[in-house]
Design a binder for these strands. Structure first.
Lengths: 346, 346
DNA sequence: GTTAGCACTCAACTTACTAGAGTGCTAACA
DNA sequence: TGTTAGCACTCTAGTAAGTTGAGTGCTAAC
């Protein structure tokens, strides 16, 4: 009972079950395996082994007289230890992505779409978070009598704008002074390095215009906060209809909703960003995501990095029987491409 | 045959059929109508009338022994002539929207969501197109040795940024001069008013820095172009699962795809913007949209206007048997709210 | 340890039947 | 002439019963 071992034969059978199920989506029976593998065993023997595997929790039966399907534990085994890595089709995507947009959000949308189309699963991508990113340059300009424009350029040329209302009209000279003040104090810093004493000092130096300094700092803070509930783009939601196990009305509706609302996806992205394994790739099977509506899905995420401190997440959402090999390969490719793209541009 | 008239009684019956069908979504039979109306007619008489209405094309039978459902022509009749206008529930939404975000895209997303939640249909909203909008203010600043930042502020405080690479480093004075040059020539103009002679003149005045002037103009042009393939936000896509007539896999998949891809929606928005009827409200029933995947849907659109020349479209997408009264009411409310919001903010 | 054989199970499909809602038509009525 | 009662007919949706086939577990023999 408890001393059962995952010996070599069991592993081979397990592999055969999963491979077959990934392809067909149907429960697989003993007879199929008996032919599918090179073990030359009869279906009866396979049946015995399968009974063991079931007891061990790697496979389960939808109903008494059906074949077996992998359990979450079974998929996990497969992903962790049994998958073949293939490092091909790097080339295929190469050109597509490189010619792309310079605007960040368009690029991300394109990538999401590219992924969805290539894999036939749904995809998501989170905009890189910039909280560790440094301020490169600040500028206040007068838009009209009682409005100032504050432009903040961060490392990696991420730009934030804010319109600030002002009570008194400022002359050019004051504006210039304020700009110099702000830049000498703030540029080169990451937002999290800006502390209260620093702000107080700046306000002192700004004299009667201290409120403006306050406003600029607020604008900065807001820019950061905005970045923190990260922007997520999704694509290929309708791909879920390709997989009967996800396509019934109830599930489809909930899934579509999850893609649209995005707040659940944010959790997922946060999680994936925080967990630092060496490859940057993570696989969530079924309930491992903690997202109710994704019980019957698997999610594969990868972290990409543009320069220092700017990390985002790409993810593929599909049925549990997704083609993990291919998905992981594709994600690796794309993250490499993004790296390359960034290095070329700066 | 051909001399059949839509007399009073037929209209009343027609109305009863549609009302009933809007509520239930089931084909309605003669007996139901005979009770539903105050006409005090037997089901047999109603049957005769219904046969007429069918011949005239206002209703149809899904199959021989079922009741009747309205045809597109029937819905059209209803929307054009028979609908009760109700101008209520203006109040209910009032507060929700006013406290909202200052960032345009967030506002639009919120509005889309508000609509979807309130109506239980899918919604879309297009960002206001700015092509007629005037340039308020331009500014070039030096980010580092070989990069300039061009900020363009348009009327209504719409801001565009562009990073320009430059070959030679510019000193502060030249930069100031260029800024003055650009602002004196361009501010106050709508992008379409900027013509070639004007550009040439500016380049002349800029002397050796004429390439920069060219770059700025390009950046402007690009900003406009970007605005022209209009941004559209959607919400409530999963609401389609509430209506069995849209919820089967095939249709749902296509619809979800249409919402996601958005290019088809763009056509719709274009159309709705170009057609100027006095109310700004338009109803597309079934094939009137020309969008294949929306054959079984109706779309109601409304145009909103923020200041001069900045018009966008809001739309509700639902089943043909949508509650047209309510939808039109809600759209009117929202467009008013948007107007108000704009007036308050400027 | 492996396998052939057999009884058993159960979802999925087919077929036949029933109920009920609705129609069109005819004939009678006011 | 318009309205209505009545009736035969149609067609979907739902139910029940039977059939098929893939698959299992178990036993006994190799």
């Amino acid at each position: 009972m408890t001393d059962m071992q995952l010996d070599d034969r069991k592993i081979k059978i397990m592999q055969a079950i999963i491979r077959n199920y990934l392809e067909t989506g149907e429960p697989v029976g003993s007879r199929t395996i008996s032919k599918y593998t090179d073990l030359n065993l009869s279906s009866a023997t396979i049946r015995n082994e399968m009974a063991d595997l079931e007891e061990m929790g790697y496979i389960l039966q939808p109903h008494t007289s059906a074949g077996r399907i992998p359990s979450d534990k079974g998929y996990r085994l497969y992903v962790d230890t049994m998958m073949e890595k293939k490092d091909k089709e790097l080339e295929e995507l190469k050109e597509v992505i490189l010619e792309k947009e310079d605007k960040m959000d368009n690029l991300l949308k394109q990538v999401a779409k590219l992924l969805a189309v290539n894999t036939n699963y749904a995809s998501m991508i989170s905009a890189p978070a910039v909280h560790k990113n440094k301020i490169k340059f600040l500028q206040l300009s007068r838009v009209d009598k009682n409005q100032l424009l504050a432009v903040i350029v961060m490392e990696g040329n991420i730009i934030k704008n804010n319109i600030l209302p002002v009570a008194e009209e400022l002359d050019d000279e004051t504006l210039l002074k304020l700009n110099i003040l702000l830049n000498t104090h703030l540029s080169g810093l990451a937002p999290e390095e800006i502390n209260l004493p620093m702000i107080t000092r700046m306000k002192q130096q700004a004299g009667i215009h201290s409120t403006i300094v306050g406003d600029v700092v607020d604008a900065l803070a807001e820019g950061i906060k905005e970045e923190e509930d990260l922007e997520i783009y999704t694509s290929g939601a309708n791909n879920i209809f390709r997989y009967p196990e996800l396509a019934d009305q109830q599930k489809a509706s909930e899934l579509i909703n999850t893609f649209e609302e995005k707040d659940k996806l944010t959790e997922l992205v946060q999680d994936s960003l925080s967990d630092n394994n060496e490859t940057g790739i993570q696989v969530y099977i079924g309930n491992e995501t903690q997202i109710q509506s994704m019980q019957d899905c698997s999610v594969v995420t990868a972290t990409y990095e543009l320069g220092e401190g700017m990390r985002g997440t790409i993810g593929i959402i599909g049925p549990k029987r997704m083609d993990y090999d291919k998905v992981i390969g594709t994600l690796k490719t794309i993250t490499h491409q993004l790296d390359e793209l960034y290095n070329k541009k700066t």
